[in-house]
Nucleic acid binder design. Structure first.
Length: 290
DNA sequence: AAGGCGTGGTA
DNA sequence: TTACCAAGCCT
């Protein structure tokens, strides 16, 4: 492997021939559309995002359209994507863009990161993919690809660090447009080829330039991130409650929620948490979406 | 700064 | 079946 391997070019060429045709990659997608796709894709497989994203874009083509709705509509339209607080924050972001930015999605990292639910990754993704700026866009896929190809490690660390951003920035072409393409390509490579558990090095454009491949492709020993319990946790019960309220046209009485889980303490804790988070409100006839 | 936060698919 | 994983963010 060569020290100055043109990683960006190799991956970008591969991307040109192998990219999935995701709807938000189509020409003419607005910055708002890109932002929504990025938030929906946080911790959620892209396959499940597609239909929901299409519905949202048709229904709320600009931030102001969403901002004009009750937050509960965003939560309901979120469906089963998971982590519904993202819907809440996306609605809040829409309110902020409509109110503070003249309904135009900001194009600076600082302004983007100031929006609810927009962090290090999503801010740079929007700046790069929507505004075609040159920024390192580092998600779990990119971290894994860089960890393997450059550092020769089987996996990256648990969270994105400043060092990850610097390492990735180094790989990007100088040209902003080319850098944006390279970032999308690195993500796609991690999603389709350089996967966590079953990488397909035989079809990888970086195989000849990959430090990890050269060392024999030893798979990571433990989990890449902290294993999460789910069954019987508060999160589980919160999800059960939200599923009921999403389907309900009218407020739901407390007794009607008793059937979702057998332990009263956990039920109560879940419900209280949801109300505290603003995902549920208690009104006259019972509990409902805000 | 470690842990909380949904949901469904795959091996 | 259980365990891990999937375009993170917030506190």
């Amino acid at each position: 492997m060569s020290q100055s391997a043109p990683i960006a070019r190799l991956v970008s060429d591969w991307f040109a021939a192998n990219a999935r045709d995701l709807p938000w990659r189509e020409p003419g997608t607005t910055a708002w559309g890109v932002l929504v796709s990025e938030v929906m894709s946080q911790q959620t497989p892209v396959r499940r995002v597609e239909p929901v994203w299409r519905e949202w874009m048709e229904r709320w083509p600009t931030p102001a359209d969403l901002a004009a709705e009750p937050t509960g509509e965003a939560i309901r339209a979120w469906g089963r994507l998971g982590y519904p607080r993202r819907a809440l924050r996306l609605h809040a972001a829409a309110v902020a863009v409509a109110g503070d930015h003249d309904n135009v999605v900001p194009d600076t990292i600082a302004a983007l990161e100031a929006l609810p639910g927009i962090g290090t990754y999503t801010a740079r993704a929007v700046a790069a993919f929507a505004h075609r700026q040159r920024h390192p866009v580092v998600d779990t896929n990119v971290r894994r690809v860089v960890a393997r190809a450059v550092a020769g490690n089987p996996d990256a660390g648990m969270a994105t660090t400043a060092a990850d951003l610097r390492a990735t920035e180094t790989l990007l072409p100088d040209d902003a447009e080319a850098a944006a393409v390279a970032s999308a390509a690195l993500m796609e490579l991690g999603a389709l080829i350089c996967t966590a558990r079953a990488p397909v090095c035989a079809r990888c454009p970086l195989a000849d330039d990959c430090a990890w491949h050269a060392k024999g492709e030893a798979l990571p020993e433990g989990p890449s991130r902290k294993p999460q319990k789910y069954t019987g946790t508060d999160r589980h019960v919160r999800g059960l409650i939200m599923a009921v309220l999403r389907e309900a046209d009218d407020p739901v009485a407390r007794v009607a929620l008793d059937t979702v889980w057998h332990e009263p303490d956990r039920r109560e804790r879940a419900l209280t948490g949801l109300v505290a988070d603003g995902l549920v409100v208690e009104g006259a006839g019972g509990f409902r979406l805000p």
